[in-house]
Computed example of a mutant assay.
Amino acid sequence: MAIRESIDKFFNNHSETKDKHWDKQLQTRYFKTTKDRAFKIVEAYFKSKPGCEIIAISDEHGEISCNLKLRKKVFITATIIMVKPFRTAVDFSVTTESVLPFDLGYSHKLIPKLYADLKKEMTLVD
């Protein structure tokens, strides 16, 4: 990890996952399931989460947007895409809402927690 990336990690209020992310924790996770099943699991997860309010659901685009109020208020967009039969990608985009322009790594730390919770419901593909 370069110094610039370390600084960006803490002095930023937005984090998102992608296939080739410099941080292994923020790389896209693939699950052994269909898009519809993964979509229902992610939707049910957010509905069951205390302090979570689902803002928008787009089944045709595979996106779920919600506001989550834990220690801080965060806006989360989950994108679910089936890339192959029984290989579905789940990506997150997390933005922390605060008076400061940075969140000291809060959004960066939240994404691995979301993946860990989803891993309990779906089988992870290596």
Rank of each mutant, 00 (worst) to 15 (best):
M1I: 00
A2R: 04
A2M: 00
R4L: 15
E5H: 13
S6R: 14
F10W: 15
N12I: 05
N13K: 14
E16Q: 08
T17S: 10
T17M: 00
K18G: 04
K20Y: 05
H21K: 00
Q25S: 02
Q27W: 00
T28D: 01
R29C: 00
R29M: 01
Y30D: 03
F31C: 02
F31M: 04
R37L: 05
F39V: 03
F39T: 05
K40F: 06
I41E: 08
V42W: 06
V42D: 02
E43S: 09
E43R: 02
E43V: 03
A44C: 08
F46V: 12
F46H: 12
F46S: 13
S48Q: 09
S48D: 11
S48Y: 09
K49E: 07
C52P: 05
E53T: 01
E53R: 08
I54P: 04
I57Y: 09
S58C: 06
D59A: 09
E60I: 14
H61L: 15
S65H: 09
L68G: 06
K69A: 04
L70D: 09
L70C: 04
R71Y: 06
R71I: 13
K73N: 03
T77E: 10
T79V: 01
T79A: 01
I80L: 03
I81K: 06
V83G: 08
D91I: 00
D91E: 14
F92W: 15
V94H: 04
V94M: 05
T96W: 09
T96M: 10
L100G: 11
L110P: 11
K113S: 11
T123R: 12
T123E: 15
T123V: 06
L124V: 12
